[in-house]
Amino acid sequence: MKDWYLLYCKRSEQERAVLNLDRQGVECYYPQVTVQKMVRGKRVEAPEPLFPSYIFVFFDPETLSFTTVRSTRGVADFIRQGAKPQRVQQEIVYGLMMNEDSDAHQKQLSSFPKPGETLKLEQGQFKGIEAIYQEADGEKRSFMLINLLGKPVKVSVENKDIVKK
């Protein structure tokens, strides 16, 4: 019986793993999100992995062994619970698939502050301070430029602490 599992891939080799798993008949899901980044001085939109180094795979372990999948080029190992590879609930995977291209997801990404935008920090150690948004710092934090003792200082703050002016 087919189930979803989560694979951990070698660094920056998710695409290689997907290609090789596909050749073996394993269905793969590699969620990506489109982000804006600077490339050679120009702002471009490019896909990036939603979960770097992770791939969801759908296969029947009675037809294709865990060892065969784990030994595929680009794959490091399964995410495990004890000695057994951990099954992933299909509702989670299908939910990710539905949200990946949804308008609400795109709207959420576009509501993020733009670099250079002036914001006010609402919570945390810098509460009440005006800051200039610089860039995202991972999933839940952002780099902000604040004026501290007359000097601009780059700090990392929780996204939930930011309020648009």
Results as ranks from 00 to 15, higher is better:
R11K: 12
K160T: 01
F58N: 13
S53C: 12
V39Q: 14
K127V: 13
M98V: 12
Y133N: 03
M98H: 09
G95V: 10
K10C: 01
Q36F: 09
K120R: 15
I146M: 00
M38H: 00
W4N: 06
N99W: 00
D22T: 13
L7M: 06
P152F: 00
I92Y: 14
R43Q: 15
P52E: 08
V44A: 04
M97H: 02
S111E: 15
L21A: 10
I146D: 03
V93F: 06
I92E: 09
N159Q: 09
K42Q: 13
F51L: 14
S156A: 15
G124A: 10
E48V: 15
S111I: 04
E48Q: 13
S111N: 14
A76F: 01
V33L: 11
M144C: 10
E130I: 05
G95P: 14
C9K: 06
Q89R: 11
F126H: 10
V35S: 06
M1W: 00
R40M: 13
K120N: 05
R80H: 06
Y54L: 08
K114M: 08
V44M: 07
Q14V: 07
Q89L: 10
P115K: 07
F59A: 01
M38S: 10
Q90L: 08
Y54G: 06
R80F: 04
Q86A: 14
V69D: 04
R23Y: 02
V33K: 13
F51A: 13
S53T: 14
N147V: 00
G95W: 10
L145W: 03
R73Q: 05
Y5W: 03
D77Q: 10
L109Y: 11
M144L: 12
F66S: 01
R70D: 06
R11F: 06
Y54H: 11
A76M: 05
G25C: 09
K107R: 15
R16N: 09
Q36T: 12
K10P: 03
P115Y: 03
N99L: 05
V75H: 01
Q86H: 08
P113W: 00
P47I: 13
D77M: 00
G82H: 03
F112W: 04
Q125N: 08
T63K: 14
K42E: 12
I55S: 02
K42L: 08
V26P: 05
P61M: 03
T68W: 00
Y8R: 06
K37C: 11
S142I: 13
L119W: 01
A83G: 02
E62H: 03
N159A: 09
G150L: 11
E45G: 09
P47K: 12
T63M: 06
K84Q: 11
Q108K: 15
K84P: 02
K42D: 04
K160H: 02
V18P: 03
K154Y: 04
L19S: 11
K164P: 08
Q106G: 10
L148D: 09
L145K: 14
T68K: 11
P85L: 03
V157L: 04
E122V: 09
P113D: 05
N147L: 10
F78G: 00
A17M: 01
S110L: 15
D3N: 15
E48K: 15
F143S: 07
E15M: 08
S142H: 02
N20Q: 12
E117W: 06
P115D: 08
F112V: 07
L148H: 05
R80Y: 07
L145G: 00
G25Q: 14
Q32S: 10
E122I: 07
F78Y: 07
P61E: 04
E13M: 05
F143R: 05
V44K: 15
G25H: 05
I129R: 10
D22C: 08
T68G: 01
